[in-house]
Design a binder for these strands. Structure first.
Lengths: 219, 219
DNA sequence: ATCGATTGTTTGAGTCGTCAAGATAAGTTC
DNA sequence: GAACTTATCTTGACGACTCAAACAATCGAT
């Protein structure tokens, strides 16, 4: 079984390679995990020896199928735990990411199954991230960053789970998963974008923030 | 903060010194934790340097007050987690010890508080072991081993949580915390002792087993 | 196509927890 | 009290993970 450390590397690689080019680099991983590049190099040799990543020195790297499978298991645990902490334990969605970062490495299969049942085999976590199924298969969503949305009507489907201050703020403003808003064209000069709810309440977001909120057009 | 390993040593010492003489030895710890005596010696030096144990080479050792406090925190976490797993998650009392052995080292204070609230600040875990309060104070019970009980009427108040086969068996036979039974004099020759419930069902236990079940006389 | 910046690799070292095996001290038994 | 047994301690080593710092390759731009 992979150690917690190995699990964290796999998760980081999955995350980084999953944004475009399909591969990542030592430097990116080192920044993501806040370890020195030398440490990453050594770990990559190790992961290569275990058949989890494809790695050629100085050429970048990517997960091999077995690495993807392992990483998906961790992601599944993470997201089920987040859902559990919100739904059953009543924690706030801004608190659960950190907790899940720890528990994802130690929870037993038995307990995870129990959680899955209690929640009715959920497909998404509290931030709208899809939960991989038992085989590591992930439902795709068609979400786009709010930042890229033309003016129109949209539903919030996903929010980045890593910045808890952002999550608290969104919660306070009533920007939650599933809510629908009328979106204005971004005012690039002001660096601001406006959401308005059917009721009327308006919310202004910085474009930075708008990049972390993902939406789907409403028909 | 103590590492998981240190927590396990403290818990083991608390457990071992808590049975009589108030102190324990390197050998006992080494057997309890299944590590070699040399490993224990090194850890004892370490714990002594941290002010957690009183240790003089070859003279045995015991927890200092700070060590007791730390150990009690771990015991509290362990027992609250066990209670949670049974009450909320619906696991069987025979399954929860192992799970709690792992989770006790990683659960956050926030989550532990939440568990404590959800359960209504319980005083005992599912095996009848008392849960230390926030200050590490433990309610005493007057339980005696069933083995030492004279014939009479008794209530089961506590069962050793470490042997899951025993727990399953007891559960199957209806021997649960809080149940009352008429206890026969032990038949030392046969190595057996009999419980009978008001209804009439009888249960035979080996004396070995009877040493792990703790009871209180009923008035 | 060479310079400088960026990125990645290597090397040497440290921490934590562990074991194996040999040395020593403390009982026990005759 | 000598011999044997058991408990404890010491030493040297290892595996996992990490860093710091020296070194090497690559890339981009002039």
């Amino acid at each position: 079984m992979p150690s917690s450390t190995v699990e964290n590397y796999l998760k980081a690689i999955l995350h980084l390679q999953g944004e475009g080019r399909g591969s990542t680099t030592v430097g990116e991983i080192s920044r993501e995990l806040e370890v020195t590049p030398g440490t990453v190099t050594i770990m990559m040799r190790h992961l290569k020896a275990r058949g989890l990543v494809a790695y050629e020195p100085r050429r970048g790297l990517s997960l091999k199928p077995r690495g993807v499978t392992e990483a998906m298991k961790v992601v599944r645990r993470h997201r089920l735990i987040e859902a559990f902490l919100v739904e059953v334990m009543g924690l706030d969605w801004s608190e659960v990411h950190e907790e899940a970062e720890i528990l994802e490495h130690v929870i037993s299969d038995r307990l995870l199954d129990r959680i899955n049942e209690m929640l009715g085999e959920p497909t998404h976590d509290p931030h709208g991230d899809p939960i991989p199924d038992r085989n590591g298969v992930l439902a795709k969503d068609r979400a786009m960053p709010l930042l890229d949305a033309a003016a129109g009507r949209y539903r919030v489907v996903r929010v980045s789970d890593e910045d808890s201050a952002l999550l608290e703020w969104l919660n306070e403003k009533g920007v939650r998963i599933g809510e629908e808003f009328e979106v204005s064209d971004p005012d690039r000069a002001a660096g601001v974008l406006e959401l308005s709810r059917r009721g009327g309440k308006r919310v202004q977001l910085g474009l930075q923030v708008a990049g972390q909120v993902f939406v789907e057009a409403v028909a």
